[in-house]
Design a protein around this nucleic acid. Structure first.
Lengths: 151, 151
DNA sequence: TTAAGTGCAAAAGCTTTGCGGGTAG
DNA sequence: CTACCCGCAAAGCTTTTGCACTTAA
């Protein structure tokens, strides 16, 4: 993410904090920055590693707690993964996912056609829908190559 | 899932096994049945509980190993969840998901309009797409009600 | 017969929790 | 000043692995 946009997101975060009376601590800013910088869909552990590289002494527990808080604020979001650990995402513009059913890799995919999908009526379900994602599921090139080797 | 369909899926599984020379053990059949019966998106632990109710001595390790194998065979599938544990799905017909960003609940949603979505060209990505899912993201009724209580 | 699967128990990862000291507002 | 947050360490879950025994084909 470029510097200008990042700065905007950090200001947005500080605004949200003061609106809701939530302390805006150093750790929270640093962890948010790490997610914004990471690009794809880091796990809590990856965020912890990134953060530790520049700031001594931020604990794993804080990373977990903070990621949860940030996603409740809506400033980042939990992504839907086929894997076994939680993953987070810097939730900027609408985008979609290519998913490898073999190695669980998830890659962002931007496409105007998908963005203009009409969300159907869900009123009977009790859900209030705010946005949507399309998952395109299949096999990535690396996994295909590995399969071919075996043959 | 009704008995007739279940029987069909089990036969399909036995066929797949013999095609690929993979042993079709009691445990695998029982675990597959448990997923088919479960309905929504059980975790390995839920499958283990279901299985243990009717069959003594099937270990957790086997449940994990088997779920992985069944999903590689394509007879079940890993679902994409915002949570922290792997979840599986009896992958029958195409369907979509309502996702609560508050409590991570995932509910199946069937809709003809979504089914007919045109999959875009992904040739530049190296992925070979076999199907797709739409995630409708928002807040479920229970979580909305809880929020209202607080106000 | 024999390659592969299974159970058990132990190890390895990921996440949460309780508590005393520290900090933002 | 005060409520909330943080780091630490320990506990709690989920998943994986090594090995001896069993089983499907």
């Amino acid at each position: 993410m470029d510097e200008r946009e990042k700065k905007g997101r950090l200001e947005q975060f500080e605004l949200l904090c003061s609106e809701r009376g939530i302390p805006c601590t150093v750790q929270r800013r640093v962890i948010l920055e790490a997610v914004l910088d990471h690009g794809d869909h880091p796990t809590a552990n990856q965020v912890f590693t990134d953060v530790s590289a520049s700031h001594r002494g931020i604990s794993r527990a804080t990373v977990h707690r903070t990621l949860e808080i940030l996603s409740r604020l809506g400033i980042i979001t939990k992504t839907c993964h086929p894997g076994k650990v939680a993953r987070y995402d810097a939730c900027t513009d609408i985008h979609h996912h290519l998913i490898c059913l073999h190695c669980d890799k998830v890659v962002d995919f931007h496409d105007e056609g998908l963005n203009s999908l009409k969300v159907p009526d869900t009123s009977s379900t009790g859900f209030e829908i705010s946005d949507f994602r399309v998952q395109l599921r299949g096999i990535c090139r690396e996994c295909r190559d590995k399969q071919d080797e075996k043959d």
